[in-house]
């Protein structure tokens, strides 16, 4: 069997006495959409942060695309093809939507020690950015200040920024959180078109979205992954039902 796109072994991270990530092993296969579910405070965001390189684990190794990336920081991992969205929307609010995406294109077009040409006049940045923006349905909103976009549009913009880096792996932390029904449906549709092109790790509380999109699901409780399997297997797992689904939380 081919090597997983990302493989985590023994990942651990504590905040004071709290084990937010507890000896986590995780394989995400190339091409799959792998959901991570679990109750509030289970450690999902902490895990995503470590996969993205924003947070340093206390122990454990991470391999991505065939190489050990354990010691690489977020920008270095981004350059290898890892992209993320944040649980709390994270954009450049005082830049236009198009600027936001063009910045992501720029970050992947060599070094930026260019001092003379206006970046906003560079077609090799603007055109790919516009194409990606159109792809997530924001083509008509290109010139709007990102701060003035609706919440759902800002989440789409985050996806566009991630896509503009041409990632192999997308780490999405609750992409539909805080969205209305219509916005959620639009986002789920967008993600289902993406899932054929790129590997996705999806952290999400919205179970409809999870069961629509995921090929496999891992369940996280108290910093540990207690089960991994197909959606059917996870739905039927007694331990999972007790720890999570049975609580009936959909927050």
């Amino acid at each position: 069997m081919a090597e997983p796109l990302i493989a985590v072994r023994g990942l651990s991270k504590s905040f004071g006495g709290l084990r937010a990530t507890d000896r986590v092993d995780l394989d995400v296969e190339d091409g799959e959409t792998h959901a991570i579910i679990g109750p509030n405070g289970a450690g999902k965001t902490t895990l995503i942060g470590q996969l993205a390189g924003d947070l340093r684990p206390d122990a454990g190794t991470t391999r991505f695309a065939g190489r050990d990336v354990t010691s690489l920081d977020a920008p270095a991992r981004s350059r290898l093809g890892l992209a993320r969205s944040f649980q709390i929307t994270s954009i450049f609010p005082d830049f236009s939507a198009l600027d936001n995406v063009a910045l992501a294109v720029q970050a992947h077009s060599g070094h930026s020690f260019h001092f003379w040409r206006p970046a906003r006049a560079e077609r090799e940045l603007r055109e790919p950015a516009l194409a990606v923006l159109g792809g997530v349905g924001l083509g008509a909103r290109a010139d709007v200040l990102a701060a003035n976009l609706a919440h759902g549009e800002q989440r789409q913009l985050e996806i566009a920024m991630a896509l503009a880096t041409r990632p192999r792996l997308l780490l999405l932390d609750e992409p539909v959180a805080g969205m209305g029904l219509e916005e959620t449906q639009r986002m789920v549709r967008l993600l289902s078109t993406l899932k054929r092109r790129v590997t996705i790790v999806l952290v999400e509380h919205d179970m409809d979205a999870v069961f629509t999109l995921a090929d496999r699901i891992s369940v996280m409780v108290y910093g540990r992954i207690i089960a991994t399997g197909s959606p059917e297997e996870v739905r039927g797992n007694a331990e999972v039902r007790r720890a999570y689904l049975g609580e009936g939380t959909e927050s």
Partner: peptide, 13 residues
């Protein structure tokens, strides 16, 4: 300046 974690996440150092 606008959002450093975001800048790092898209690949800027």
């Amino acid at each position: 300046r606008s959002n450093e974690p975001r800048a790092r996440a898209i690949g800027f150092a």
